[in-house]
């Protein structure tokens, strides 16, 4: 009987120790259920840079700025580049690639009509068609080729600028 009471005490003492980690983990309750081992580094990661930043502000700032600068300075895709990247990606199959090419060609034909001076279509008509096609491309590749999806998103306005400008369009 005493040994049982001792065991109960030991168990409760153990549980009291166990309650500490979940206290600082309520925001990621779902994660704790999935992978308790993975949870530990997650809170540590944001915690460590915070003290490090005031300690070494000069070294921390360039380190943080470098990836941001890289992301901002990443080159935009032109139409040829986009075409090549879409050809090369393994995120979509051959039928999808050909169907996308068909739709790009159809849209380019509409732009040719516009630049030839025949209306419709107007530029306002073409913009939704262009946006829809970009959205289709992004939705098709974003899961298996997120880098390309990101590049497409960043190049959207640049490509539109080429399509909408007659002199740039004719030089494609």
């Amino acid at each position: 009987m005493r040994s049982l009471a001792f065991l109960f005490l030991a168990l409760t003492a153990g549980c009291a120790g166990m309650t500490k980690p979940p206290v600082d983990a309520p925001p990621s309750a779902a994660r704790t259920a999935k992978a308790p081992a993975e949870k530990k580094p997650a809170p540590k990661a944001p915690a460590t840079p915070a003290p490090a930043a005031p300690a070494t502000p000069a070294s921390a700032a360039p380190a943080a700025a470098a990836p941001a600068a890289k992301a901002g300075a990443a080159p935009h895709l032109d139409l040829k580049g986009l075409e090549q990247r879409l050809k090369d990606t393994s995120a979509i199959g051959i039928f999808t690639k050909l169907a996308l090419k068909n739709q790009v060609d159809d849209l380019l034909a509409k732009f040719r009509t516009y630049h030839d001076g025949r209306k419709p279509p107007t530029l306002a008509d073409l913009r939704p068609n262009y946006e829809l096609l970009i959205m289709k491309v992004q939705s098709l590749i974003q899961k298996d080729d997120p880098a390309l999806a990101d590049d497409v998103a960043r190049s959207r306005e640049v490509i539109w600028g080429v399509l909408a400008d007659k002199s740039k369009f004719t030089s494609i």
Partner: peptide, 14 residues
Amino acid sequence: AAIRKDLTAVIALH
């Protein structure tokens, strides 16, 4: 699986 995925995408594209 790859061809089914490809066909799914192409049907949706249409």
